[in-house]
Amino acid sequence: MNGIPDTRNRILCLHGGGVTGAIFKAQARSIIKALPEFRFIFADGPYFCDPHAAIIPVYQDWGPFRRWLRWLPEHPATDAESAVEEIKYALETCANSDEGTGPIVGLMGFSQGAKLAASLLYEQEAQMKATGSASTQYQFAVLLAGRCPLVSMSSLTESPGLVSAGDVSEGFDTSKNDRSHILSLPSVHVHGLNDVGLHLHRKLLHEYCDPASTRLVEWDGEHRVPIKQKDVQKIVDAVRDVVETQTTITAQ
């Protein structure tokens, strides 16, 4: 920005499984353009993996590809503590290497990244309830095609309704949901009505989030990030509505 510090509020963005931060930035280009009041920063997941089949036709040369969590049994096993530390390191590296100086006030994730974004928001909420303070200050999350369950990021959030950070995060039995792990911080849920995982996205919305703090955006699409203006505008309106309710987020 011509030597002028960029003090805009920042949104930390988490890509889907088998993708990269750079790919997610390209996928989310319309959302970024429509929300110029924010600086979007894109982290890379800590683990290498094969590319997601859906991105190969366009982004096959954008590797190496990464993931945040295990979603296939063949992904190497790891313990929960190590997985959490790797995730935290990746997020901190992104934040610390970014030239922007504004606070990170929100999260935006797609698919596996949305699952993690909601989990990080829930972990922060649990820290606040337990100790009165938290290691992060996220105000909201934008969850693009985010599916249940949430992921436990510490002993504070261990629950039969959450999956461990070291376990395979797909195929989880959500019947274990005991309704004691409801996310209350604001979340914007973006659902493609033709997405094969829509039923799991709706479970995240209805079984893991407080309806008083959620906004739902539905669009006529599959498992991808919306790019058309009419669809993106719905997301923009929902995000700005959330910001207006958060008195700690100052306009830039």
Rank of each mutant, 00 (worst) to 15 (best):
H206V: 04
L143T: 09
N9L: 00
E92I: 06
G45W: 05
V151E: 00
F110V: 15
Q60D: 14
L193H: 10
S97G: 02
P5M: 08
A83T: 09
Q139T: 09
V232T: 08
V168S: 10
L121E: 07
R147Q: 15
R10D: 04
D210E: 09
K176R: 13
A34E: 15
G63D: 03
L156H: 08
P211W: 05
I56H: 02
A130W: 08
T157V: 03
Q229R: 14
S119D: 04
G132T: 14
L193D: 14
H181G: 12
S175D: 11
A28G: 07
F172A: 06
N96H: 09
E99D: 13
I55S: 00
L116V: 03
L198R: 14
R70W: 06
V190I: 15
A77H: 11
P76G: 01
I87D: 03
A141V: 05
L144A: 02
Q124N: 06
G17I: 05
I87R: 06
P57Y: 09
D241T: 10
G3I: 12
F110K: 07
G197H: 08
I32W: 06
F65I: 04
N2H: 15
I32R: 08
D98W: 07
Y59L: 01
T247Y: 03
L14G: 01
S135G: 02
P76K: 09
A28Q: 07
A34P: 01
L198T: 14
Q27A: 10
R10Q: 12
N9P: 11
A212T: 00
S152E: 10
G192H: 12
F48P: 00
E85P: 02
C209K: 01
A43R: 04
G16V: 09
S155E: 15
S187V: 13
K228S: 13
I55M: 04
A117V: 09
F40E: 07
Q246P: 01
G221H: 07
F65L: 03
C13G: 02
P5I: 12
